[in-house]
């Protein structure tokens, strides 16, 4: 019988060899707990993210925009599904994960607690929010837990069109009339800082980071990822004539980095603790829909049970 310490050492050795940990492998309880929390929150975020975009899909201004947005929302739902799948490999049921979300025990990305107020927001969400997510997700492709890593590889393949979709909307609007330009800049002003906050607290303030990095759940730190996002996105903004709403933003010739002004962590804390514009709305929407759908799920289960008792042709050909 191996001692706990021996098991831990062996586990760490596997991690250090960059081996993937699979669902049935031994893992420290804290590793399992962290993964479950992270994967399920990631899944919840994708699903909640369907709400602000679903809000605008009915009003998309062209057939092309509508189709693209529908495809994007489908992808998002699909990503939620891949991630719930990955979480379920750890032995938890999706029903339980949803309950955790409803009870506030599990969180979702703070970014979706902000409202999508005009069509340019859909552009900003695709470009900035998906853009930030991509930076994070590309890094996570190398995460140590096998199921999560595979889900990330799949997601990354699909994600780049999302960012292009968003940026394209902004490009069109910045080439448009004055009202469109104003709308685009307004969306930029409202989504920029929340997008930066998506990367989480500064490394110095992040409680989870050290252990997550040791276990290679996380491969790069919050600030490193955030800086990567800022560098590529500022250039993209300037290219189409958008102003980054940061009066302290300046380019550092020596490092080649765009240095951001101070992030308002008070706002971050407020919103993550329930005091954002859409927290209540997102949650009550999800809860209501879940409850309203129960009779459908019950019916499907009842039918399947009855069917397993007899074979029948479902539909004429």
């Amino acid at each position: 019988m191996k001692t706990e310490q021996a098991k831990l050492d062996e586990f760490q050795a596997r991690i250090d060899r960059d081996e993937k940990i699979e669902p049935k492998d031994w893992m420290p309880p804290e590793y399992r707990k962290t993964l479950l929390r992270q994967i399920s929150q990631h899944a919840h975020s994708e699903v909640i993210g369907m709400q602000p975009e679903g809000n605008w899909v009915l009003r998309a201004p062209t057939l092309r925009a509508k189709k693209i947005l529908l495809a994007k929302i489908q992808d998002e739902g699909g990503h939620g599904l891949y991630l719930y799948s990955a979480a379920e490999t750890l032995g938890i049921d999706r029903e339980e994960l949803i309950q955790q979300l409803h009870e506030g025990k599990a969180k979702y990305s703070n970014i979706f607690n902000y409202p999508a107020l005009n069509w340019a927001d859909i552009g900003a969400i695709g470009w900035l929010v998906d853009g930030a997510a991509i930076v994070n997700q590309v890094s996570l492709q190398r995460t140590s837990f096998g199921s999560y890593s595979r889900a990330m590889v799949r997601i990354c393949k699909e994600e780049s069109f999302h960012q292009r979709q968003g940026y394209e909307i902004m490009v069109h609007m910045m080439k448009g009339n004055d009202e469109q330009k104003e709308m685009a800049q307004d969306a930029m002003n409202r989504w920029w800082w929340p997008a930066l906050m998506m990367f989480g607290p500064h490394d110095t303030d992040s409680a989870h980071t050290h252990q997550s990095m040791t276990w290679r759940i996380k491969r790069e730190s919050n600030d490193v990822l955030r800086q990567r996002f800022i560098n590529k996105t500022v250039d993209q903004a300037h290219f189409i004539g958008l102003t980054v709403p940061d009066k302290d933003l300046k380019f550092n010739e020596a490092t080649g980095h765009w240095e951001s002004g101070p992030i308002n962590w008070d706002e971050f804390r407020e919103v993550i603790n329930g005091k954002g514009p859409c927290n209540h709305q997102r949650m009550s929407h999800h809860i209501r829909v879940h409850n309203e759908g129960k009779w459908v799920r019950d019916a499907a289960l009842a039918y399947a049970e009855a069917q397993s008792k007899q074979k029948a042709e479902l539909i004429p050909q």
């Binding site: 699903v47 369907m50 709400q51 975009e53 679903g54 899909v57 009915l58 509508k66 529908l70 929302i73 489908q74 739902g77 699909g78 939620g80 599904l81 719930y84 929407h285 829909v289 309203e292 759908g293 129960k294 459908v296 799920r297």
Partner: peptide, 20 residues
Amino acid sequence: AEWCSNGPILEEDLAMTNIS
């Protein structure tokens, strides 16, 4: 498309938006 984020189960949400 009105069913987006309103489906009785996530898979069906996707099925309906797929048909849409």
